[in-house]
Amino acid sequence: MAQSNFDRRRINGPEESFQPTFEDDDDRETRWKPGNPRIGRGARDIRPIFLTAGLINQANGSAYIETEKTKIACAVYGPRQSKSTTYNEKGRLNVEVKFSPFSCTRRRVPIRDAEDRSVAVQIQQALVPAVRLELLPKSTIDIFITIIENDGIEGCIAAGSVAASAALADAGIEMLGLVASCSAAVVGKEIWLDPTEEEGKASSGTLILAGMPALGTITSVWQSGSMTPADGIKCMEACQERYTDIHAVIAQSLLDNAQNNT
């Protein structure tokens, strides 16, 4: 890793390290080949979601989400007074994402690296239109997201946005609506929702859509890789249809949490 972020106060890994080489899966025959239907689930199915609000006690609001191999914890602190002295008419939504060192196949150094910020920026974009920051002048809302296990960056960003939105609601921060998010990938001629890491690699293009199902509006679109505009629109429609279901999951978990606490 880059020597510039060398932290001498920490026990660093060996100077040189290699990611483990896994034996080629024995299920070579069962591996997906172009032209075949998707393995394990339908093209428009997403991984089952386990979402619970109120995981971290010391935070104002928190949530934990698990979609098969993606595991994310999220805590919300605030609204609290901004540290900077400049006057801000609108509140600030600060999102910080941290990959745990063991979250990926290759070890990630514990120090802030480049991908953290790009993921944080995307999650922030998904949430900002929903949060009523105009009601919170001079204050900051901090959202800390820890990715415990990562299976595909697209799914990670979508799940992170969902968890953050649940945590914001758990913290009692006013929002226009709950934000739900879903990812899609174009594989061959098909559209697969919520791709895993391997499926993401097999795809020609991926898309992440976030929005407020209750209002029927979109807060963030992120697309990468090549797809025709028509495919892009199809992906967005599929995502929008699916994240309405995710919205119900978030609502249910918030309800459960509220009922348990009283």
Binding site: Q125, V128, P129, A130, L133, L176, G205, L207, G211, M212, L215, G216, T217, I218, T219, S220, V221, W222, Q223, S224, G225, S226, M227, T228, P229, D231, G232, I233, M236, E237, Q240
Partner: peptide, 20 residues
């Protein structure tokens, strides 16, 4: 023509119809 990337930025929301 293919779409190679798409990013929506800013603190506002948008309808799918408008986006299309």
């Amino acid at each position: 023509p293919t779409l190679q990337a798409m990013r929506l930025l800013g603190p506002e929301e948008l309808d799918l119809k408008d986006l299309k």
